[in-house]
């Protein structure tokens, strides 16, 4: 698997993401800067990591979503390349219109940095097949704006189609998001956005490896289709 990690001013989880991808795939990802207009053809997975791109000015992810690299990512996604956005990366994907909905200020108005439980709602996606449906995993979160909102009609369709991939479980919703949504996918099934940070729980040095399955799933699917 060849992966690419997107870098923008203010993103700060890129190094964690690079470390996780390197450990799990055995190969260091390439990095892509915001002003680039193309991504190498052999890249199978594009990851937008977390952080505070452009200082969260205007709205989280709003400025980043209008940078040239985003058009290249949209073009790749239309060709079926897998795209994962974590935390600010998720906010950027919704601002870019690549995923439905919006991420609003946490209902507590507080930045939350803690561990939550996630239910794997759909274990048939390219990012979750290493898990069982209904499995509850641990995952860290760290964000101020993770309160997922979408209009009720769109939400009903997403729930029916299995596009709500992760839900906060066991009363651990840290931000007030609708239907306890922690991660959603596009209809085609190749773009996943999630607020929690699976890259920070991939080895025993992290205190667990529950997040590893997201990367391992994508790796398996890509290896099988290569």
């Amino acid at each position: 698997m060849k992966s690419a990690v997107v870098q923008l001013p203010g993103l700060n989880r890129d190094r964690d993401m690079i470390a996780a991808l390197t450990k799990i795939s055995g190969k260091a990802p390439i990095t892509v800067w915001q002003t680039e207009t193309d991504i190498a053809d052999d890249v199978d997975l594009i990851v937008i990591p977390g952080g505070f791109s452009y200082g969260d000015y205007l709205r989280c992810g709003a400025i980043a979503a209008r940078m040239p690299i985003m058009q290249a990512i949209k073009d790749k996604a239309e060709k079926g390349v897998k795209v994962l956005g974590v935390c600010n990366g998720f906010q950027i994907l919704v601002e870019a219109g690549m995923l439905p909905g919006a991420l609003m200020r946490n209902s507590s108005l507080k930045f939350v940095c803690k561990e939550v439980k996630l239910e794997v709602v759909n274990a048939e996606t390219d990012f979750t097949r290493a898990y069982e449906k209904g499995q509850v995993i641990r995952c860290p979160v760290a964000h101020h704006d993770g309160n997922y909102f979408v209009d009720s009609e769109t939400l009903a369709g997403m729930e029916d189609r299995g596009e709500v991939v992760f839900r906060y479980a066991d009363g651990t919703n840290p931000n007030g998001s609708m239907n306890d949504i922690a991660g959603v996918m596009n209809s085609r099934g190749n773009v996943l956005g999630m607020m929690p940070h699976p890259e920070n729980l991939i080895e025993m040095a992290h205190g667990g490896s529950d997040g590893r399955g997201i990367f391992a799933s994508a790796l398996d699917v890509i290896a099988a289709t290569a």
Binding site: L58, R66, A102, V150, D151
Partner: peptide
């Protein structure tokens, strides 16, 4: 439409 407002919300 393009930047100042997020018309989803």
């Amino acid at each position: 439409e393009k930047l100042l407002a997020n018309t989803v919300i």
